[in-house]
Design a protein around this nucleic acid. Structure first.
Lengths: 155, 155
DNA sequence: GCAAATTAATGATTTATTCAAG
DNA sequence: CTTGAATAAATCATTAATTTGC
């Protein structure tokens, strides 16, 4: 390697402070002209380019969000309230389901054997969607994990 | 409210993950039999009913659509004024950077004496986000702490 | 105190999504 | 069904903190 001539931008404290202030003040996704303006103004503190600003905001958004999300996810593990108005539409569903062919009898409308087993295997890619995958991308990568689990998959 | 009378379904992380995976894999609108199958399979992770699955997909569709729509509206409408906005961001930014904005920032190299700000004044609250504010729903918006500063916004 | 080694932060790239146009 | 536009998520890579042994 020749020089490794400072391959990546390193914000000065002033630059960082300004950026953080802007973010805190509500500027989370600056558009191009805003980025240009920011860049111009921050350049007096040191070398900086538009893409640096762009990346900074992108990374900051992502990391703030991930930080926040982790906290919420770990703390909020439960929370049920509010009656479900769902019943209304559910009737529609049930009606359809009745006409359906699959379930032996167990309509999925109400009640169920709910035991919170950590037992089953991922069924993510079960063959639920037959009409989608005509080779645009590698849709169902992996998959085929169809692990029983009471699947009366008699499709 | 120590009771939370289980009025509303609360997906387990596994259930949510599975649902999101299915959605991502292209299943946006499962029909009744698919919903039945999903419900049966996910029930091993905890209590779940067909209507929950149905509503989950419905809400997820709506929510995704809203998210994206918001974004588009923000960019296209907000930037339409200058006609310069709806560009490819990065290419523009890179071009800007390559053109050299100011100079090789002489003086922020390795020495850790970050006292390099004898030039600019606070530009934190410059008028970067005047009327767009992107605050369609989240963000704190507000801002507007425009501290005079007389930034000649001469970009 | 100081550097080599290790770990944590964070800038920059790549990848996978989304809905909508064509 | 394919492609366009635009991320945000995931990942890679390099810089800064820190730990450690001397």
């Amino acid at each position: 390697m020749p020089q490794t001539p400072s391959t990546r931008w390193c914000p000065t404290p002033e630059q960082r402070m300004e950026l953080e202030n802007m973010y805190r003040n509500g500027l989370h996704s600056p558009d191009v002209s805003q980025i240009q303006l920011i860049t111009t103004n921050l350049s007096c503190y040191g070398k900086i380019e538009g893409k640096n600003v762009f990346y900074w905001f992108q990374n900051h958004r992502a990391r703030e969000r991930q930080k926040l999300r982790k906290r919420l996810a770990k703390q909020l593990l439960g929370g049920a309230q509010d009656a479900d108005q769902a019943m209304n539409l559910l009737s529609k569903l049930e009606a359809q389901g009745r006409d359906g062919v699959i379930g032996p009898a167990s309509g999925f409308g109400i009640s169920y054997g709910y035991d919170v087993h950590p037992c089953c295997r991922p069924l993510i890619t079960l063959d639920l969607f037959p009409s989608k995958s005509t080779g645009l991308r590698d849709e169902c990568s992996s998959s085929s994990k169809n692990s029983s689990c009471s699947t009366s998959t008699d499709l």
